[in-house]
């Protein structure tokens, strides 16, 4: 991709700017679709129909919502720390958006083909943590601060299981580069790491229980990292009145929202790349190629986004101590066992 841009524009700053903005072409339409998905799925789960008037079955409603948010008055609480208050949403969005650079959208496109792909995503996501903390503190609202503190504690705790479950896949592939991880799983559904990867049959069968466990935990930890139900304590509406983004309105709120949806896809993308074959086709060579691979990646990602929506509208919320308990005393020990076992199986 960059080669193409380089050829067109030469080695100028513009290349990098365009390169950096490319994922926006995906994230922005995705957010619109995801809002619609969230609303429609939740509505049908709840015996409603959701909006029906803007366009066919209300498909234009998210666009209208965005336009509304753009026009809304941008309020800043009088006693807020104004600079930090304004800065925070952008940091939060940056944290999620920067992760897209290392996500292999297709066999032909990855933002930055660095060898430390997953590691990089884990690292930049800490930016969002700081952003959340900033927003909570700068709002000068006790509820927001509560939400911010909770979210930071939660994200940091769940980084451990997610990093460990990433490690399981990385150990099998032997690379942190998501593009290579995806390539590794080429050749059909049986080669996906969640099913043991392209290993000899015996090894594959031995790996199977551990990879499946790690896959589920990664998905769970991912939901926790994007603060969605049942782990949505930071913005628990009934307790904390939306937590850290209580005081935000208009465009700044929209950016928080965008960040949430971007993160939803990022998490799904990581899960898909590491365990479900990334952009590879489930049917081996059938329907593969750059365009098809983009389709597969997005389709798998959207499925996991749908799963997150489904879970959100089904389950109640955990309590803070239960959340921490889940992370430290359930998921992490399980993963230690997984890592140990996978290491053993791979060496033998």
């Amino acid at each position: 991709m960059y080669e193409l841009l380089h050829d067109l524009l030469g080695d100028s700053l513009l290349v990098y700017v365009i390169g950096a903005a490319l994922p926006l072409l995906f994230v922005l339409p995705f957010a619109v679709v995801a809002v619609l998905l969230e609303m429609k799925v939740s509505a049908h789960m709840q015996d409603r129909v959701a909006y029906m008037y803007t366009g066919w079955h209300g498909v234009l409603q998210p666009v209208a919502d965005i336009l509304k948010l753009l026009q809304k008055e941008d309020t800043v609480p009088a006693a807020a720390d104004k600079f930090l208050f304004r800065l925070a949403p952008f940091l939060v969005f940056m944290g999620g958006y920067a992760g897209f650079a290392a996500l292999p959208f297709s066999s032909a496109y990855i933002g930055s083909n660095i060898d430390l792909g997953v590691f990089y995503i884990l690292a930049v996501s800490s930016l969002a943590v700081i952003g959340l903390m900033m927003s909570g503190w700068a709002s000068n609202n006790k509820w927001s601060l509560f939400g911010a503190m909770r979210s930071v504690a939660q994200i940091i705790s769940y980084e451990i299981p997610s990093a460990l479950s990433i490690l399981v896949a990385v150990m099998i592939v032997g690379s942190l580069n998501l593009q290579e991880v995806s390539k590794f799983q080429e050749g059909g559904i049986q080669n996906w790491i969640v099913f043991g990867g392209p290993m000899p049959l015996l090894q594959k069968l031995l790996l199977l229980p551990f990879t499946i466990t790690a896959f589920f935990i990664l998905f769970l930890a991912g939901i926790a990292e994007v603060n969605r139900t049942p782990f949505d304590l930071p913005e628990a509406e009934s307790e904390l009145v939306q937590g850290y983004n209580t005081e935000y309105s208009g465009m700044k709120f929209a950016i928080f929202y965008l960040a949430e949806f971007a993160n939803m896809f990022l998490v799904s993308g990581i899960v898909v790349s590491l365990y479900l074959g990334g952009w590879t086709s489930p049917f081996g060579d059938v329907m593969s190629g750059p365009i098809w691979s983009f389709f597969w990646f997005v389709a798998k990602g959207m499925f996991f986004v749908f799963l997150q929506v489904w879970i959100r509208w089904t389950l109640p919320r955990l309590r803070v101590d239960q959340l921490m308990y889940t992370s430290w005393k359930v998921l992490t020990p399980f993963l230690f066992v997984c890592i140990f076992a996978v290491g053993l199986i791979l060496v033998l």
Binding site: S42, M45, D232, E237, S238, W313, T314, L315, P316, R317
Partner: peptide, 8 residues
Amino acid sequence: GIDMGAFT
């Protein structure tokens, strides 16, 4: 249910 975070 809402208090517990379950909207449906």
